[in-house]
């Protein structure tokens, strides 16, 4: 009877050992969320690619953006991902003070990135960029800029809020190592999306 019950998997699995992915339910659900959210960005970037291909002209990004500034933003986000990975490693090794320190550094990195993106938006809006028009001749350029970077910023802001809550709970001893791991996965996903945006929208 016990064997029959065990054979009910996969719908009935209850531990890491019987999961086909060898991860807990929580982590599997975070991965499912990351995949679906990744496909949302994939849709945006595919739509952007379609418009690029069908447009006879496209603004020169080097003339519109300060690429060195955008590279600095990338540096900040990549660094915050490294501090997050260190926090996750420390959480799994039970080093409580290290986790709190690196979580707060990650939050700081996220806030700096948000500030830099806000500065970039402000600069472009002052130059006349709007959701449906811009001074560079191709209206879709600013539409995709605000859409894609706006969605990414929302994700960064959400990540900063999640990490702040996790850091607070960790300091009070009310957060498990897996909580830090899951928050870390989300934060790295935000970094991963930026890698694609930086290359496809700002450089190519």
């Amino acid at each position: 009877m016990a064997e029959a019950t065990e054979n009910v998997a996969p719908l009935g699995w209850s531990s890491e050992t019987s999961s086909p992915f060898a991860v807990s339910w929580n982590k599997l659900m975070m991965w499912v969320f990351i995949i679906t959210d990744g496909l949302l960005f994939a849709g945006f970037l595919a739509g952007y690619g379609f418009v690029r291909l069908s447009s006879p002209v496209w603004p020169d990004q080097m003339a519109v953006f300060h690429i060195s500034f955008i590279a600095l933003m990338t540096f900040v986000l990549i660094s915050s991902s490294a501090t997050m990975a260190t926090a996750v490693g420390a959480a799994l090794q039970g080093k409580r003070p290290t986790v709190a320190r690196f979580l707060l550094l990650t939050v700081l990195g996220g806030l700096i990135f948000l500030g830099m993106q806000a500065y970039e938006w402000t600069s472009l809006i002052r130059e006349g960029a709007r959701l449906y028009s811009n001074p560079w001749g191709v209206p879709q350029f600013s539409s995709f800029f605000f859409l894609i970077t706006g969605f990414h910023e929302t994700h960064v802001l959400t990540g900063v809020m999640i990490l702040s809550i996790i850091a607070g709970r960790w300091l009070k001893g009310r957060c498990s190592a897996e909580g830090v791991v899951l928050a870390g996965l989300y934060w790295h996903f935000v970094d991963l999306v930026w890698v694609f945006i930086f290359t496809l929208f700002y450089l190519i």
Partner: peptide, 15 residues
């Protein structure tokens, strides 16, 4: 990022 920061390198191939 996927392999080392998100630890996919250490996960099961299915995932």
């Amino acid at each position: 990022i996927g392999a080392y920061f998100m630890h996919l390198r250490f996960e099961k191939l299915n995932l």
